[in-house]
């Protein structure tokens, strides 16, 4: 499913991540958090990953970095399979993560310099103390923190600044690829825009590639080149950002896009929302066939029988729906 021409930086094939959940004494059941997800990300590209809570988008990000051991599937970085201990270790020097909550993802007992310096120590990237200090200051400069902040503790900073510290830490290993897991959802609107702009600038300056996970569709639309939509552990649609936003093909993406509250009263009043009934089913008891069929207004018997294939319907536009032609 890769685009012709340049080789993708990250390629994921049929990724699966199951968690065993105890359902009784000596009994357990697999929770299929991610169930057969495939995608690729080109160098310098931002892939947005959206979906409701519990759809597995965070798990994709974490499994991708081998923070969880994948249950199945293959992950390639620059064409090389990431599997052995050695390859994982090398991969982690090239890939980093920014977490959602800037309040709990920083150690309150460490100074900013130590937080940012820790990945440098772990991967032994600096030969001398002096080099380490210089590198830390350089990283702080990248994210717009002053050098005088280096000896302070995380609690002395506001949410936006903490997120900057988290980003500086991610940049410490000089990565090509960063998984951003809801990096702005805990921030206020005015601060959110500052951090989004910073992600943009860093991408231009350092040639970074992002997997940008978020539930705020306006933010994802702003920052992403392509967007993937997940539902209950599966990818249901993947296309260019403008294409998926203006012409979503999967019934779930359609309702998701129409549910976005637009900050414009006239548009909001005229907007026809496609209301979904009911809630997202538990991934422990996922419906047979298409996972969305229980809430889908177009569902037929066929949808309960088999899982629709994730196929390319027009150039670069993938969708997993049996009835995609009839729906549109």
């Amino acid at each position: 499913m890769s685009e012709t021409g340049t080789m993708p930086l990250i390629e994921v094939k049929d990724l699966k991540e199951y968690f065993n959940i105890n359902t009784g004494l000596f009994k357990s059941k697999p929770l299929k958090a991610v169930d057969g997800v495939s995608f690729s990300i080109r160098k310098g590209e931002t892939l947005g990953l959206v979906g409701e809570s519990g759809c597995g988008k965070t798990t994709v990000g974490r499994t991708l970095l081998h923070l969880y051991k994948p249950t199945g599937g293959e992950i390639y970085y620059n064409g090389e399979r990431i599997e052995s201990k050695e390859s994982i270790r090398e991969f982690r020097k090239k890939a980093a993560m920014v977490f959602q909550d800037p309040y709990s993802s920083l150690n309150p007992r460490m100074t900013v310099a130590d937080i940012i310096g820790e990945p440098l120590d772990v991967h032994k990237l600096c030969a001398s103390k002096k080099e380490r200090g210089e590198r830390i200051l350089e990283l702080m400069d990248h994210v717009g923190l002053n050098s005088e902040h280096a000896s302070r503790y995380a609690h002395e900073f506001s949410g936006g600044q903490r997120q900057r510290i988290g980003i500086a830490r991610a940049l410490a290993v000089n990565p090509d690829f960063i998984v951003c897991d809801e990096p702005v959802s805990a921030l206020d609107v005015s601060i959110q825009a500052q951090v989004i702009n910073m992600f943009d600038e860093l991408q231009d300056r350092l040639g970074l590639t992002y997997l940008f996970i978020a539930h705020d569709l306006l933010v994802v639309r702003h920052i992403s080149d392509r967007i993937a939509v997940m539902y209950l552990g599966r990818m249901v649609e993947l296309a260019d950002a403008a294409e998926i936003y203006d012409h979503p093909l999967h019934p779930y993406s359609q309702s998701l896009m129409s549910a976005v509250p637009v900050p414009d009263p006239k548009v909001a009043r005229a907007n026809k929302r496609i209301m979904l009934t009911g809630d997202i089913p538990s991934p422990l008891n996922a419906p047979s066939g298409c996972p969305f069929r229980t809430r889908c207004p177009y569902a037929k018997e066929q949808c309960a029988e088999s899982m629709p294939e994730f196929k390319e319907v027009s150039k670069g536009h993938f969708v997993a729906c049996h009835r995609v032609n009839e729906v549109n």
Partner: peptide, 13 residues
């Protein structure tokens, strides 16, 4: 606030 029209441009925080 990001909107559909701001994609690919800088926001004004």
């Amino acid at each position: 606030i990001p909107t559909a029209d701001t994609a690919g441009t800088k926001l004004h925080p």
